[in-house]
Structure formats: structure tokens, C-alpha cells
Design a protein around this nucleic acid. Sequence first.
RNA 1: GGCGGCGUACCCAAGCGGCUAAGGGAGAGGUCUGCAAAACCUUUAUGCGCCGGUUCGAAUCCGGCCGCCGCCUCCA
Length: 486
Amino acid sequence: MRVYNTISAQKEDLIPIKDKHINMYVCGVTVYDYCHVGHARSAIVFDVIRRYLSYRGYDVKFIRNFTDIDDKIINRANELGIGWDELSKKYTSEFYHDMDLLGVGRGDIEPKATEHISEMIEIIAQLIESGYAYSVDGDVFYEIEKFKDYGKLSKKDISKLEAGSRVNVDKRKRNPFDFSLWKSSKPSEPSWESPWGQGRPGWHTECSAMSKKYLGETFDIHGGGADLIFPHHENEIAQSEALSGKTLANYWIHNGFITIDKEKMSKSLGNFFTIRDILRLYDPEVLRLFLISTHYRSPIEFSEDQLRDVEISVDRYYSTMLRVEEFLTLKGHAKKEPDLSSLQKIVSSAINRFTEVMDDDFNTAQGVGIIFELIREINRFLDTKQKGSSADVLIKQAMSLIRQFSDILGIFTKTPDTWQISLMKTKVIPLKESDIAELIENRNTARAGKDYAASDKIRADLDKMGIILEDRMGKTTWKVKLNYKV
RNA sequence: GGCGGCGUACCCAAGCGGCUAAGGGAGAGGUCUGCAAAACCUUUAUGCGCCGGUUCGAAUCCGGCCGCCGCCUCCA
């Protein structure tokens, strides 16, 4: 397997520290508000990476943290007039709510900053002791110039950074880029006791403390959004490696941004959609497929047109599943031996191709492409109406491949029925399933009597309410019209 | 100013030196159908921002130019 490593800026062979074991630490979220689509992307990207590594036989230990104390949390809680811990608890559970819908699995361990204060204090004390940090009036700063490799991850030359170009520099710092390890607190703020007085830890320290505690001084993969490269991950390296003298993580993996009108989606710009904004309009699988249809390091321009296209793709998948179910329940045999060669060919190469593209830096976009090639071949074969036991076997084989790939990507978890039910909700279809069944019944009676005017009227009426009918193999099925608008 | 990335058909998107430039959407024509829908077939880049160069061979490597974006602040 090859993965792109931010620190070497190239793809490298993935060689675990311990044979067939992968320890990975991914930076989670600061729980002070609902997650937006950018958070969803990061979570999904690392969820897929984790699933794929498991699929490839690695025993993966996956850590994802929660930052549950920081300035944003305190400020937000003050605005709302509630406790900071109440706020962080609320948004932790909102995070789970969204991630569960998106099919993002839990971490094996999900450490919280506030549960590791003593570990952080320990690290800070050691940094002071070994000369990498200094305290000033209850605050502690890391002195970046003491760490000679500072900047190696983000490729920054300290002397060329534009200090204070966008933010006022704290005069007490020896270098403008020295960062806070410990912040003294005002009387009204949440605080913990420390050798430097009451205060709270700086953001970067939690990941150094928690990754060390759960994965040791050196682990395999460290991940997060590309915006964490600097300063967050750079600072983690500075803290951890200064003390251990060892490499913190062998591979640094960072996902690209979501953009809107070419600009990064972010809280500060205000150009974001929350996950639940989108899930009101689209099934979670649509969002998930949309996000993995582009390589994880490329930017994704967020657009509703694109979501609509992806929704059609998902619908195409479930339509094919339905056709397959119908085909497999059919009795009888074709007169001649079915021609399986075309489907056979793609089925026999699919696993190798899928593995090959995913082995190459987790190319989910190509993986998705392979699934849709299989779908086309299945449909093509189904169109030949060649029934037979050899055909059934091959179709089932193709289906099980699609199942395997979809499970790795975490998509297509529904049945054709539950997909339609989900669509009825998101499209707000003003009908019940029983209503539809009754109208289909009426229409079939009309059709039997060749009263096509009456049957077409029923079909047109249903269409207006967002339901499309399909007459296939002597049966009428219905589906939700995707471009239906209330 | 420093560092990094991107520009592939009407839209999205893969491709990272050598098979007909994946896949999805959209448009057009066709097959099937009572008519539809779905599905399938054909079709839409002799072409990969522009100009040079390296090479037997480049969307892929190198140089220049144009355009867009990111990081250098909290940020997934």
C-alpha cells in the first residue's frame, strides 16, 4: 500500500511499526456547535481509511479525540448562558447523532481533553524542565526556536513567517510564534490547578498527551484536516518529539477542504452548511457518496447540483438491486446457454482492480467507479433476460463484490425499499404507501380493460405527487421522483 | 513576501511516462414498452489552461506564462 505522507510530501509504502498492526490518531472536533460538511468529510475520509486498512488485514487501533475545553467553547457557553461542560456535552452528542447517520464508526478510544489534564500538566512540566518552555505570570509558552526541526511538517521557515500580520502578538512571548501550553484563567472561567496557578491547557497539548497515553511515543498514522497541519500538528510534533527524541508519527495524512464558490468552507467566513442542513434534503448516503467521489486530498466544491447528481447515482444503484432481486426470483431457464463472458470478465478482475486503486493512497473515486462499472454490466446482462443457474451464480457473485466494496466505503447500506422510504421523507411525498398501492391496483384494472386513458390519468396524477410507476415483467413498481419539488 | 496545490468534455471527476483519456450527471438518436419509466446501445475531449523543451513515446517529467485556491490566525 502507498499513502501520501504530508511530512515527506510524497507517496510512500505503508510499513507499520508492528507487523499487521496500525495505530492511528485522528484529530476530532471541538464540540461547541453543530458539525458542518467539512467536518463530515474529514470524519468520513478517516472512517474509510480505517475500514480499508481492516479489510486489508490490519489490526487497526483508531483514536479520535474530542476537544471539550477551549476558548470557543467558553465564549459560546457564555453567549448562551449555560455551563461550558453542558455545552460540550450537548455538542458531543450532536456529533454522534450526525456521524451515526453518516455511517461513521466510533473510535476504539475517544479521549477528551478534560479527562487528561494531569497528563498534559506532566508534559508541560517536562518541557519547562528540559528547557523547551517557559512560564510567564501563570501562562506557559513553548519556545519554538529551541526545537530545531520546527516547521518540518508544514515546510515553514520560522524566520520567514509573517509574525503578527493578522493577529496581535503577545509581548510576553520570546518569539511571536511561541504557542501556549497553559493559559491562566480569569476567576469566572473554568480552570484546573497547576504548578503555574489556576488555568487550562492550550489546545495542542491534548493530542500530544493523549496520543502518547494510548499509542505510545511513536505511532503509525496521524490524521486530520489540512488546516491542522499548521500550527496544530506542527506544534504537536514540537512538544512530543522534544521530549521523546523520537518520531511522533510515521505517516501524516490530511484531507482537503470543502469549498463554496472556490473558497474554503469555514465557520469564520460563515459560508458553511451544517450536516443536518443537508440531511434535511438528502439521504445521508448521498452526502457520503458525494464526499468520497473525489480523492480525499483534492478540494471539493460543494454544490447542490452535484448532490442531486449523486442522488441519481444512488437511486441507480438501488434500482439495479431491485432488478436483481426480481431476476433471481424468476423461475425457468433460457433456451440457449446464457452469454456470461462480458459480466464474467469484469467480475473476475474487480477485486484486484478495487484493491489496486485503494492501495494507491485510498483512491475512493476510482473505487466508486468500479462499483458503477459492475452495475452497468449487471444491468446489461439482465437486459438479455437469460435465466439459468450459471447466470444466477454469476449475478450473485457480482452482487457480493459490490457488497464488499460498498461496505469498505460505507455506502449502499439500505435495501431498495428503505431507500424509497427515505426518499419519501426527504422529498416530502404527500402519499402513504397504501395510497400508492391502491392507485396502482386501480390502474391495473383499467389497463386490463385496455382503458389507457384512465390508467394514464392515474399515472400522471401520481407523477404530480412525486411518484413514478414502472411496468416491468408483468408487475408495476413505484419509485420516488427525484426531481420532485413540493 | 514565504511555502504548497489546482486548471481534463456541457457539469462533476479519475488518471501521476506507453493499452480505445475511468466513473457519474446532462443533451441527442435508437432498442424495449399499449404509451411511459427503468435498463441497455450509439453519440458529445485526435483532446487534457497557454507556449516551449526532454523522450522512441507526455494529460502525466522540466521551464516560462495566464487564471484560481490554500496555509503563514482559531479552523476538519
